[in-house]
Design a protein around this nucleic acid. Structure first.
Lengths: 330, 330
DNA sequence: TTGTAAGCGTTATCAG
DNA sequence: CTGATAACGCTTACAA
């Protein structure tokens, strides 16, 4: 391995001079500059990033924690974040928590060991008190997740607004018994969605029943919801479903059609995410569009800013707007 | 920041002893061992990974290069690889090339700088001669991609076999004019798929026309294929399409139905990947199942082996079997 | 069983 | 403008 020292001796200068040349310091004679670059070429020298990381005590690596890469929403979010971080010279380690607190902890621990410089949390599995401890070791920001107490930047979209818009739309279509599919009950974001739903229901639906369907992640889950739902008599089941993602909506639609229920005439369906699958179903899926890219870019920028300015984290809630896209399923 | 030295002085031992305790070396007196651990607890010490990386000249980081995270096949592949690498104590940097040679090069360069220890290439954008150069700086393995000359491990699935199986199936269903959707023409894997198709066509179809539809990535692309296809008279267009991925197949099916063409009676469609979307369409999509997880695990293991045994890379082609899944679209 | 000291590659300080 | 030198935190001969 050729080092800065090899360059120095072959160019008849000191290590310092070579280092200065490499870092484009001023005050290096033109002659030496040329000589050094020439030898660098000759010996095909590349600076050693490991030594640099050590020297500066930072490795330009950020971890992004998402539940999984299976759901396109998260893979797109991770992709957006990662793209921006890369543009700023950072490496990104995408880590799946699989909704598991222990997995999340493993990544948090990496901050302690200085394996990473900061973390972007796209879901919360541990208590905030637990996570907070790790702020001693590096910055953490929240993206696409919300927490009341978190004393760090929170970048999310207007969950309540989007939910309200969707429910209003269903209401206008004449639905009063509206069901609600979500994935995991204990995420703060999901709780928020549920609350919006409940508030809305209390005020506008005058409907006492809760039509909650948890554990909905996939197309199959959506199908199962319908399979169970149709066991109930018509007046004791929802006439519309607001699902937590478009895959679930696609499953719902597929199964409804299978059972001869017409969408949207007999049953309304709204998805979430505006994934391309919305166009493949028949009818196409009304959904909520989230500006994933904007979320990602803003989050990355926020983290990098605290990292480079070395200023302390503080709570700052940035909200992006979701947008209801009306297609054929409502 | 507390270092090994702080522990040493507080515990009244030398740095060496602390290091030995941390690394579970034998030959440390029980007394000192206890003392050291106690002080480590007290001072809440964590070994500095940056210093360690520097010392060992390796940072336990692997880059996985995929075209993008947008297509679930690649995000799942990256996920599988990353999971296995993590299990073995490696960090994974997932990098999207966006089918761009320059982006790929940026990652290859990281190998030179020792920013990463090895690379898993899930697509090839540069010439092999160009990539080969980087083998001087660290191991590279190929996953889900094929190259005749590559002198490194190649982990892929039986592309030809799967294609043949699919085409045979269509043949048995009475199709002779079979169209072929693929994404980019210059990938070695895609070339292979095309070749299989052409061979097959020459031998079994006695059909001289090439029904190739390039640049097919998304549902919309699939729809567009059909839109263009129906402009031709019935006897001058395919009666079945073999698409490169399930999204395209979903788009094809959707658009065919839109135009009143019955699938599979009037038109056969086969997808690729066995993505969950296959279940959401009507009819459901016949497809080829690829054991993504197995690919990922095997690839990760292969790379780690060369890394830990420090043995030179050599060509080794490992093939997994794809499997035709027949559903309603054929 | 323990401690001393060298060394990993780079940068920054300071004196010339 | 340049060079010597210390320093970053950790591991490992080698010596004791």
């Amino acid at each position: 391995m050729t080092t800065i020292y090899d360059i120095a001796s072959k160019a008849n200068v000191s290590k310092s001079t070579v280092s200065r040349v490499l870092n484009h310091h001023p005050y290096v004679s033109e002659k030496n500059k040329q000589k050094v670059w020439q030898v660098i070429e000759e010996l095909n020298y590349t600076p050693n990033a490991l030594a640099r990381s050590f020297r500066f005590m930072r490795n330009k690596t950020i971890a992004v924690i998402i539940p999984n890469l299976y759901h396109s929403f998260f893979s797109l979010l991770a992709s957006g974040i990662s793209k921006e971080l890369r543009a700023q010279g950072y490496k990104t380690v995408i880590s799946e928590s699989f909704y598991n607190a222990e997995n999340e902890k493993v990544i948090l621990e990496m901050l302690k060991f200085k394996e990473i410089e900061g973390i972007i949390l796209c879901s919360i599995e541990n208590d905030w008190e637990f996570i907070e401890e790790y702020l001693n070791y590096g910055p953490i920001v929240l993206c696409n997740e919300f927490h009341e107490e978190a004393t760090i930047p929170v970048i999310c979209y207007d969950e309540r607004g989007a939910t309200a818009e969707a429910l209003n739309h269903l209401l206008n279509q004449g639905h009063t018994r509206i069901g609600f599919c979500y994935d995991v009950s204990d995420s703060p974001l999901q709780k928020m969605r549920q609350e919006s739903y409940e508030q809305f229901r209390d005020h506008d639906f005058q409907e006492t029943k809760k039509w909650f369907y948890p554990e909905c992640f996939t197309i199959k889950d959506g199908m199962n919801v319908v399979k169970n739902l149709v066991k109930h008599p018509q007046n004791d089941r929802p006439t519309a479903l607001f699902t937590g993602n478009d895959y679930v909506a696609a499953g719902v639609i597929k199964e409804l059609k299978q059972r001869g229920l017409d969408v949207p005439r007999e049953f309304g369906v709204i998805g979430y995410d505006d994934h391309q699958i919305c166009l493949a179903t028949h009818p196409t899926i009304s959904t909520i569009h989230i500006p994933i890219d904007q979320l990602g870019v803003y989050t990355a920028k926020t983290l990098i800013k605290t990292l480079s300015e070395n200023k302390p984290l503080q709570r700052e809630v940035k909200t992006f707007e979701g947008k209801l896209i009306i297609r054929e399923s409502t």
